[in-house]
């Protein structure tokens, strides 16, 4: 393991950087988009509910690889050029958004209806009630499952290897193919994935405690 790190340090660092960047971008965008989708699902407007629902059902029920391949193979052919990294990150973000939307929707719905009625009865608009009363309470509920989802997202970023996204998994495959030491190549990146996922897990646990 140490050997592999000594010989392929630059390559691994490169992969670490791309994995980190893909995860970060996908996390930020899927959180924003996931919140938007969740709101579409809960607002009192049938058409918006349908749109949100449809998106979530489609994207969380298709394997991530197929979504990524769509952006890697089909989109460049007919629409716009996307390299492996972009295709992988976009696929990852759209896929994860569906799961985040589900988490946030159920978080919002877990806040009792009385909170909404209490707020509306003082003359607050629906948006004001959401912003000041419902979402802050939902946030507390969604932090643990959201943390799980973020960790999944980081691990799922290994999908980039399939579209030559230069991430950790891609580098491990390349290293394994020259050293023929598949096991240690994967173990090394296992440790590098832990370096990203564990601090994130701790941070989410800390947030959970602080908000409780």
């Amino acid at each position: 393991m140490i050997n592999i790190f000594n010989h392929f340090g630059n390559q691994l660092l490169d992969g670490f950087g791309w994995t980190l960047l893909a995860s970060f971008l996908a996390l930020v965008f899927s959180l924003l988009f996931g919140i938007l989708l969740a709101l579409l699902e809960v607002v009192p407007a049938k058409f918006a509910n349908q749109v949100g629902r449809t998106y979530v059902e489609i994207f969380r029920n298709i394997p991530l690889l197929i979504i990524v391949m769509f952006f890697y193979l089909i989109v460049p052919k007919y629409f716009v050029q996307l390299d492996g990294f972009s295709a992988g990150t976009i696929g990852l973000f759209l896929y994860t958004s569906a799961f985040i939307a589900e988490i946030i929707r159920s978080g919002i719905q877990a806040v009792s209806n009385g909170q909404m009625e209490g707020a509306r009865s003082t003359g607050m608009t629906y948006q004001q009630a959401l912003q000041h009363i419902i979402l802050p309470q939902a946030l507390k509920i969604v932090i643990p499952p959201l943390g799980n989802q973020f960790v999944s997202l980081i691990k799922d970023s290994s999908i980039l290897a399939f579209v030559a996204g230069f991430d950790l998994m891609y580098q491990a495959n390349a290293i394994a193919s020259v050293t023929f030491d598949t096991i240690n190549s994967y173990l090394v990146i296992g440790v590098l994935y832990l370096l990203i996922t564990m601090p994130l897990s701790y941070y989410m646990q800390y947030l959970e405690k602080r908000l409780a």
Partner: peptide
């Protein structure tokens, strides 16, 4: 919303905002 500014309501289960303290519950609206 305009209507409800002039019509207050007190509920059986209070429906105080759980994420705000007592003073903020009163001052928010």
């Amino acid at each position: 919303n305009r209507l409800r500014q002039d019509v207050g309501m007190v509920f059986q289960h209070f429906n105080l905002y759980k994420n705000k303290n007592v003073l903020e519950n009163i001052m928010l609206a």
